[in-house]
Design a protein around this nucleic acid. Structure first.
Length: 662
RNA sequence: GCCGGGUUAGCUCAGGGGCAGAGCAACCGCCUUGUAAGCGGUAGGUCGUGGGUUCAAUUCCCACACCCGGCUCCA
């Protein structure tokens, strides 16, 4: 081995001998030209660096390729720089702020002179300018400089100066670190004589490595996410390692758009949001209502057999109740305004828990009654700010599948553990298989109760998660004001994540309401309260389900399960007999008479996403058979009607108890 | 709440200071049909609401309601 050579170690443990002062790109080159072509950055000694970084003797080096998560992150971050350069070139005087890579893409926030805003036409012009920059194959040249020099360099860019000052003064909350790194010096990346951006990197070697991107939309965004700060103009884009990856992404977006629950709800005549009713308030049409009812029936069935007791509580309550619970203190702005009445002030309820506390407190409780599980499909009203409403997913009046479990402290861990089983089992019935767990902990500024009880409650939740042996992430400071919680996310049929269920531990409301039970020691004790919702909001869950199934509800949930189509009028009598028999067994069935051609009627049924279309003609009348056209399957002619019925019964059996299937 | 865009027939959308348009759906005929759009006809509108400019406003301006994309918020 010559003295002027170095050895570096690759991720697989092998080592490689290179000439001294070789760069990461040289290393990639020496491994293979295909790798070098795919390379966008390197990880040297655990740190993400540019490909132009020089390697030293003994370095651990991994080449980051464009088709990895880390590689796409680099591509997107670099593309954001190109966006900034294009905007600065096209809009003289524009101030650029931050431009990070995000899931599937990137954005960059700008402030335009005179408070101007971007239009869709601007977006096209900017994208075209970006393509010029890519074509010019400008290098990304890294430089480190002192804070003083950097401040001088960005003298016309107040937001950049603010970032530099915050990071170097140690005031950064971490969000800025992605831009500059930190320490006494900062790094910048220069593309041209006129364009240089503050950045930690790494970046691709040159803009020619980019190109599979698209600008998606323009939106307002607050500087530093601060509602009281200036409103900036944000441009969102997406960027990928190849044309095919970009196309796939755009196809996924189109697929998601097709599944949009607001669109499907109109197409399938499920529900609507009449403007006359006011924002965020829905009315349920018969076909949406039957699906919702089935969901609720299933929920009631599971709760009834799961040891819960049903309760009902009113929609309004005296302000005193919400003062006791603390809701008025923490969420007054999110509550509907009060109504003054002869004997006091009343509010529409934003939560059911205070009322369940009153039911508990109505009489003295014994330890023998615990855990006491109260369940209600309780409709609540929350004054969501106008700009936050979003179909069924963010709505002002909604129904929670809400339970409050009152238990002794020593029962808490077991109760949470069995609750997790219960939640997952219910969610699985709706076709969800992929779950993620999040533990939210206390925010000292927005909470009540002693440190001690918060620690106990958090420990109980962690214990339950560990007993289930599941991975979970921790969200610091995300808890409710009364206690920590576990939230459960699910992935839907096309891989999107939705937060649905929540299990919350509460030592505080029992104290505020003075809840007690008499223990076996004949002394008074304070119960623990567990809040939990599986669907969360029935409306929101319905919206998620609609997108998850793309409108094609499974047979047990479908508004119409079977449609019978007589080939001609002559077969209508036979068709009617079949319909009556199926309805007699509780199935949801209809018939469309032969006023239109069969092909047209089949098409309509398919567009309505019906699970089964039965076609009956001469052969079928003669042989007591049907033609079965199942959703997503092949047509089978000459099926014995009884055989189809046996399959249909088997398919829907056991979800709901007898008598609740419609 | 903030920034931007939007609202025309039941739905999807075109149009544009001077008689309001299409496709699908609906309704009425004809066709009697074997697995994803048969043919013909009819009807359907205070162009989101209110105000303003104008000889004239669905079109331009303002306000409000609702919707969409984000931001912020989300017990």
């Amino acid at each position: 081995m010559s003295g002027s050579a170095i050895d570096v170690t690759l991720p697989d443990g092998s080592s490689r001998n290179l000439p001294a002062s070789s760069t990461a790109l040289d290393l990639a080159q020496s491994i293979g030209s295909r790798l070098a072509k795919a390379a966008v950055a390197a990880v040297i000694g655990g740190e993400e660096r540019d490909l132009s970084s020089q390697l030293a003797q003994g370095d651990q080096v991994a080449i980051v390729t464009a088709d990895s998560d880390a590689g796409r992150h680099v591509l997107r971050h670099s593309t954001a720089h190109v966006l900034a350069q294009a905007v600065v070139a096209l809009f003289p005087g524009a101030k650029f702020t931050i431009g990070p890579a995000i899931e599937d893409g990137f954005y960059y926030d700008f402030e335009l002179p005179g408070g101007k805003t971007f239009s869709d036409d601007d977006l096209q012009a900017i994208e075209s300018k970006m393509r010029d920059i890519v074509k010019a194959d400008q290098p990304f040249v890294r430089a480190e400089m002192s804070v003083k020099d950097a401040l001088a360099l960005f003298v016309d860019q107040p937001y950049k100066c603010e970032i530099i000052e915050r990071v170097t003064s140690g005031a950064s909350d971490g969000a800025d670190a992605g831009e500059v790194g930190g320490g006494d010096s900062v790094s910048v990346y220069r593309n041209t004589d006129s364009f240089v951006d503050l950045c930690r990197g790494p970046h691709v070697p040159s803009t020619g490595r980019l190109g599979h991107f698209a600008l998606m939309k323009v939106a307002g965004a607050y500087w530093r996410g601060n509602e009281k700060g200036p409103m900036l103009q944000r441009i969102y884009g997406t960027a990928w390692e190849s044309k095919s990856a970009l196309d796939e992404h755009l196809t996924r977006l189109a697929e998601a758009e097709k599944r949009d629950h607001r669109k499907l709800a109109v197409e399938m005549d499920l529900l609507s949001f009449p403007a006359e009713l006011g924002g965020g308030l829905a009315v349920w049409h018969p076909k949406g209502a039957i699906v919702r009812k089935l969901m609720e029936d299933y929920s009631r069935h599971r709760h009834q057999t799961g040891g819960y007791q049903f309760v009902f509580t009113p929609h309004l309550a005296n302000a005193n109740l919400f003062e006791t619970s603390g809701h008025l203190h923490f969420y007054k702005d999110g509550m509907y305004p009060p109504m003054e009445m002869d004997n006091g002030t009343y509010y529409p309820k934003p939560m059911n828990c205070p009322m369940h506390c009153l039911i508990y407190r109505d009489r003295q409780r014994s330890y023998r009654e615990l855990p006491l599980r109260l369940f209600e499909l309780g409709t609540v009203y929350r004054y969501e700010r106008a700009g936050t409403l979003h179909g069924l997913l963010r709505i002002r009046g909604f129904t929670q599948d809400d339970s409050h479990i009152f238990c002794a402290e020593e029962q808490m861990a077991d109760e949470i553990t069995s609750l997790l089983d219960f939640v997952l089992s219910v969610l699985r019935q709706f076709g969800f298989e992929d779950f993620e767990f999040k533990l939210s902990t206390r925010d000292p500024d927005k909470s009540v109760g002693s440190d001690e009880i918060w620690e106990k409650a958090t420990a109980a939740l962690i214990d339950a998660l560990q007993r289930h042996n599941v991975e979970y992430s921790v969200k610091e400071g995300d808890a409710a004001f009364y206690g920590p919680k576990i939230d459960i996310d699910v992935r839907d049929a096309i891989g999107r994540k939705w937060q649905l269920s929540t299990i919350q531990c509460d030592f505080n409301l029992p104290e505020r309401f003075g809840l007690e039970y008499i223990g076996s020691d004949n002394a008074r004790h304070r119960p623990i309260m567990l809040h939990r919702a599986l669907f969360g909001s029935v409306e929101r869950f319905f919206g998620v389900l609609l997108e998850h199934y793309g409108g094609a509800f499974p047979t047990w949930l479908a508004p119409v399960q079977v449609r019978v189509l007589p080939v001609t009028t002559a077969h209508e009598e036979y068709a009617t007999r079949l319909v009556e028999q199926m309805r007699g067994e509780g199935f949801r069935v209809d018939m469309v008479a032969a006023d239109e051609q069969l092909g047209k009627r089949i098409r309509s049924a398919k567009m309505e996403r019906l699970p089964y279309v039965l076609v009956v003609g001469d052969d079928d009348v003669a042989n007591q058979t049907i033609g079965v056209n199942p959703r997503g399957g092949d047509v089978v002619r000459g099926v014995k009607f009884e055989s189809f019925m046996a399959d249909l019964r088997a398919e829907t059996k056991g979800v709901l108890p007898q008598g609740l299937s419609s």
